[in-house]
Write a protein that binds this DNA or RNA. Structure first.
Lengths: 223, 223
DNA sequence: CGCGAGCTTGACGTTGTTCAACTAGAGTGG
DNA sequence: CCACTCTAGTTGAACAACGTCAAGCTCGCG
């Protein structure tokens, strides 16, 4: 197993023995995706689990020509874990929103690790549960809040979870942002402009700077 | 371990050895809840995992005086699994919508089983993933469909997944149904009445009979 | 230079919520 | 036994929130 792989997986695989590490090395492929390229398609075979090491990926559901972005995946996270032990079909699509590097691991390999290494299994469960908690928050945001609250949630998430900075290039198009917030592109644009005019954030193209976290949080709360 | 417990858990625990079974018996309590009683409260300590053996339970998020029912749990399912390996706080509430019987199991006990029995761990992962897939469907229903589609989804779910019959007493109040569909009580009532008038379902109080699955599916698809 | 994709804006219509009022049944206490 | 109250269910009308449509704009790329 080469050092890159070892480094990337470190937090996940530091309890594996040599036999297990060797087995991974044999069942893993490293891939690059350009911005805009599709990693996996809703309905396709989920024969592999993807581990993101660089870049940014959106996971989205396609429904009647409209997409909803379920999650934005950053390096260090898996894509397709939720298809493990299921019917083996992806129930969402994944596309790169920045040049990305991934390791693609055989699904059976993951199952092998889970059944042979209980530490690993526990980490996977913890990871799945953290995801679920995140999805619950998103369900609330998307169903109980109005446009302003949803955009505020999205900006807070991008700033705190994804880019970890108050100033960032969000990479997402307005349409992506709209699909992340479950609204029309036009609405997303309008709210973004309002936030800019009200000096809650500073926006220039895709560059975004948060001016007042306090106001964003307030908007997030009142819905 | 008494036979009731053994029978109830059978599909989950059939791979456990005697030591493990004994340990469960020591760390498990059987409880009854009346219709309307609360099993666990959002924000409370998630020290126990609940296994439902009889009745029906709603899992819901409270947000600014409004509730959203995330899931309706039927016998044979766990409540609170998603709090395992997390910060130990329930991120949702659970309330009985019919007289219910449960086994309450220590969370550490579950972790013990997961780390000592890989079959069990794999079943848990499979269960969590099945849940996640279900949540994705719900996110789409709640965010991409209009009122009619959402009510249609709810009725189809109740009929096929929960009660497994075309004729059932849904137990849910109109308000519950509305909270399950993320809409106002008034809207739920109006759509229900429309469906009744259009002979898609037959409704008398809480008794519901599906007349045309075809129409319901059509409504579900067009949104 | 022209073309398409992303972005922006305003006008308009629809969907769904809110509010207010009214009904019926179930429980409670005088 | 009869007010009284509480909750669930129901209905209509007014209103607000959002999506849709149409038009125009800019910028990068072939």
């Amino acid at each position: 197993m080469n050092t890159n792989v070892q480094k990337a997986f470190a937090p996940w695989f530091d309890n594996l023995n040599q036999e297990q590490l060797d087995k991974i090395a044999e069942n893993q492929v490293s891939l690059n995706y350009n911005k805009g390229e599709i990693l996996s398609k809703q309905g396709g075979f989920a024969s592999h689990i993807i581990y993101l090491t660089e870049g940014l990926v959106k996971i989205y559901k396609e429904h009647n020509d409209k997409n909803l972005i379920l999650k934005i995946v950053k390096p260090g996270e898996f894509i397709g874990l939720s298809s493990l032990y299921s019917k083996g079909i992806f129930d969402y699509s994944a596309a790169s929103i920045d040049n990305s590097k991934v390791f693609s691991i055989n699904a059976e390999m993951m199952q092998f690790l889970i059944s042979n290494n209980s530490d690993f299994a526990q980490k996977i469960i913890a990871h799945l549960n953290a995801n679920t908690t995140q999805y619950f928050e998103r369900i609330i945001s998307l169903t109980q809040k109005q446009l302003h609250g949803r955009i505020a949630d999205a900006i807070l998430h991008l700033s705190r979870v994804i880019y970890k900075s108050d100033k960032f290039n969000m990479l997402l198009t307005r349409r992506d942002l709209a699909e992340f917030c479950g609204m029309s592109t036009e609405s997303a644009i309008r709210i973004l402009k309002e936030f800019h005019n009200d000096k809650i954030v500073n926006i220039e193209g895709k560059n975004l700077e948060v001016i007042s976290y306090q106001l964003l949080e307030r908007l997030s709360e009142v819905g």
